[in-house]
């Protein structure tokens, strides 16, 4: 039995040694927003945050993140009725097509903007090239990150929005 903190909630789960975090999140915690795509950290669909840093949950043993703060796509919005600024930008740019990769894309984008609120095109490409989108929505993902970045800066320069 291991104890995990996901989106601020405690979970006690049975996880055999070596079992990747991805399957614990999806099958035992029933948080299916985090996706399985490749199983070898090639596609980024399984991206979650551990203590704020993006990791590939398909190759991360669940036992290695005990006691850490795990955040999934279900846990990034500030509250039930408000979307994260990145999710909002994703809707405004009409970014997803099939949508399967988008949880991972959004988690990578949130991590990028947390580190670097105003990334350049090259910095966006560098941070996002680990996330595959087979529908090829890279242009829209990039635009959405820029939109979110602008919104972020507007909100930090305007204390009323904070």
């Amino acid at each position: 039995m291991i104890n995990l903190t996901i989106n601020g909630k405690e979970y006690s789960v049975e996880a055999p040694a070596g079992m990747p975090l991805l399957w614990v999140i999806r099958e035992q915690c029933e948080l299916t927003g985090t996706k399985f795509g490749c199983g070898i950290a090639q596609c980024g669909a399984c991206t979650v945050h551990v203590d704020g840093k993006p990791i590939r949950s398909c190759i991360t043993p669940a036992t290695s993140v005990e006691g850490k703060n795990i955040t999934t796509i279900e846990g990034i919005a500030p509250d039930e009725n408000t979307l994260h600024i990145v999710q909002q930008a994703w809707i405004e740019e009409q970014t997803p097509q099939c949508g399967y990769c988008q949880s991972g894309q959004i988690m990578s984008a949130v991590a990028l903007l947390n580190e670097n609120p105003a990334p350049s095109d090259e910095e966006i490409e560098q941070a996002m090239s680990g996330n595959i989108c087979r529908c090829g929505m890279y242009g829209r993902i990039k635009s959405a990150i820029k939109r979110a970045s602008a919104a972020l800066q507007a909100s930090t320069s305007n204390p009323q929005l904070q």
Binding site: L31, T32, G33, T34, K35, F36, T72, I73, E74, A77, L83, Q87, W90, I91, Q94, T95, P96, G99, Y100, Q102, S103, I106
Partner: peptide
């Protein structure tokens, strides 16, 4: 689209 940015969209998987 809204369900696809929150992780709520349900795929076969």
């Amino acid at each position: 689209i809204p369900a696809k940015v929150t992780g709520q969209a349900k795929f076969g998987m």
